[in-house]
């Protein structure tokens, strides 16, 4: 299939973010080690990003390289670093690891906020962050027969019927341009905005983010007609199209 011997693909990786507020290498290493010792298997070879955008004062290239080495020595894998885009240090090009774009994730401060006590010199924050890469839509042209199961990481489009006893699942939306007679589960990873659309609603079960409805209930709302299913305030709504 590929002449080049490889394929380039997008992927989502869960990483740990080390947000440095005050640079004091010994303190950082000490407190970080303490955290690691609590759950060593979680941190072992875990990918980590060093973020210096919240630092009050600047940091030199030597200090920064030392920090990378110290963090690596603790068994973590430093995969990149982050900085306030408006305060990029002059030495940014000489760093050996990649500079990553600034975060949009909310940071959760794990340190106790206590104004009477002196604030600790170093606060290690672990922000588990997922970067979402849009997933490709899966398109199926053949009928989905009884006993078959189809799952899509993104949206699922079926240009044929889904037979009774078949099951279609998607992390995103589901479109069925034929009769939907089997089970359709959209937003299976918890996406409450996912919807199901179909030409002829005859489903055994429809579900969005775990909220489901069976055919007995569906019959009283829309049956053998086009419909969409969406979640409104934790309850399923079946709307004729």
């Amino acid at each position: 299939m590929t002449d080049s011997g490889f394929r380039l693909k997008g992927s989502v990786v869960t990483t740990i973010l080390l947000e440095i507020q005050t640079f004091s290498l010994d303190d950082i290493v000490f407190h970080l080690k303490e955290k690691i010792d609590q759950v060593p298997h979680f941190f072992n070879q875990a990918p980590i990003i060093i973020d210096i955008s919240k630092m009050k004062r600047g940091i030199t290239i030597d200090e920064f390289e030392l920090l990378i080495q110290s963090v690596s020595a603790l068994g973590l894998g430093v995969i990149g670093w982050r900085c306030d885009p408006e305060a990029l240090p002059v030495w940014k090009a000489s760093v050996t690891i990649p500079l990553l774009p600034a975060s949009k994730a909310r940071s959760i401060n794990t340190s106790p906020v206590d104004k009477e006590n002196a604030s600790p010199d170093v606060v290690v924050k672990t922000v588990v962050e997922e970067r979402l890469v849009p997933q490709a839509t899966k398109v199926i042209t053949k009928p989905i027969r009884s006993g078959q199961q189809v799952y899509a990481e993104g949206d699922l489009i079926i240009l044929n019927q889904v037979s009774a006893g078949a099951e279609v699942l998607a992390d995103g939306n589901i479109h069925v341009y034929g009769a939907l007679r089997g089970r359709a589960l959209a937003g299976v990873k918890g996406d409450v905005d996912a919807r199901i659309f179909c030409r002829s609603m005859e489903a055994e079960l429809v579900s969005i983010a775990g909220n489901f409805m069976l055919s007995d209930a569906l019959r009283n709302i829309v049956w053998k007609d086009s419909a969409q299913v969406l979640l409104v305030d934790d309850s399923l709504e079946i709307v004729p199209l």
Binding site: R145, S146, Q148
Partner: peptide, 13 residues
């Protein structure tokens, strides 16, 4: 009819 539908799925897979 349900079983035939199942066998059709097997034929095509």
């Amino acid at each position: 009819v349900r079983d035939s539908d199942r066998i059709l799925g097997i034929l095509q897979s």
